[in-house]
């Protein structure tokens, strides 16, 4: 047990969450990452696969063991589930993950909301929640926390937060390459001229996805299997504005390099009541972006 940050007495202190790993990391890298998080100053950790049902590098006993270690370290563990669910086998896996999750699970498809059946869950960023009526619907189905869609402006979020269902926590995708789209097509396999059914897990070669550039070399998007992300890293740094909008939790999306420094930067900003978090220099080619929060193009960056 090594929670290094001071417990704030402010009930409105922002919590830090680490989102699910969106890429295919090998088993040892994944286990090492979560071992490291046991000692990291974060409050919540999301586990599991959200992007591609074919990715199964973690062995059967790995996830429960990782979850136990994180819980012993004082973290709340949430099991995330697949966003694009097509096959019967994927539904069955989703049902099993939800059934076996000791605590909360994160629903990223309405199928998972159906599985909840009254159990408490997190309404994930891939459910389309843009208004109070939809939020109320999910809360009535058991949602205890809502991760806002990435394109939702902070002003809209503030309106929804002001009339939120009782007890509902609100989380935003504060840091990381933005998950923008899902497809039936695997773009990583396509970039390597491989059929999806013979992908050879080529996405495992790209621990932060493949950066897609415009023909004048502007980093634009990131290919991550069937998911398309931004090339730029979302950097929600205005802690005061996030808090004022009613945000409770900041989600930091894992990247393969320099992630400890990102956690430390957010932790320091929260613990010192800083208005703005000062992030390290970006390690990925797309730099930072924050346009969505201001209601403009997501790629924009005002800092």
């Amino acid at each position: 047990m090594a929670v290094t940050h001071a417990k704030s007495t402010d009930a409105r202190a922002l919590k830090l969450a680490v989102g699910p790993i969106l890429y295919l990391w090998d088993r040892s890298a994944t286990l090492a990452f979560y071992a490291g998080l046991c000692d990291a100053p974060v409050d919540i950790v999301y586990l599991g696969e959200v992007v591609c049902s074919k990715r199964r590098v973690m062995q059967k006993e790995d996830w429960p063991a990782v979850a136990r270690a994180l819980e012993l370290a004082g973290k709340q563990v949430v099991f995330s589930t697949l966003a694009l669910t097509e096959a019967e086998s994927e539904l069955a896996t989703m049902g099993r993950i939800i059934e076996q999750a000791p605590g909360l699970f994160e629903a990223n498809d309405m199928a998972a909301v159906g599985y909840a059946n009254g159990r408490a869950f997190v309404a994930g960023p891939h459910l389309n929640v843009y208004n109070a009526a939809t939020l109320a619907f999910l809360a009535a189905r058991g949602a205890r926390r809502w991760v806002a869609p990435v394109e939702l402006p902070l002003a809209t979020l503030a309106t929804l937060a002001a009339s939120r269902p009782e007890g509902l926590e609100i989380e935003v995708f504060a840091y990381g390459r933005l998950p923008l789209a899902f497809s039936a097509r695997c773009f990583t396999a396509r970039a390597h001229n491989r059929p999806k059914d013979e992908c050879g897990f080529i996405c495992g070669d790209y621990p932060d996805g493949i950066t897609l550039y415009s023909r004048e070399d502007q980093p634009f998007l990131t290919l991550n299997g069937i998911q398309t992300q931004s090339a730029a890293v979302q950097a929600a740094t205005h802690i005061d504005a996030l808090r004022a909008a009613g945000v409770d939790i900041l989600r930091l999306s894992p990247q393969s390099q320099g992630f400890d420094a990102v956690i430390a930067a957010y932790r320091a900003a929260i613990d010192t009541n800083a208005a703005i978090a000062t992030l390290p220099e970006p390690v990925l080619p797309g730099g930072y972006c924050d346009g969505y929060l201001r209601g403009v193009a997501g790629i924009d960056h005002a800092g």
């Binding site: 694009l84 389309n128 869609p149 933005l178 923008l180 789209a181 634009f220 969505y292 193009a297 790629i299």
Partner: peptide, 14 residues
């Protein structure tokens, strides 16, 4: 892309 699950346009244009 899966309709309803694509924010590419808002990422580029708002």
């Amino acid at each position: 892309m899966v309709e309803g699950r694509c924010a590419l346009s808002s990422y580029a244009t708002g």
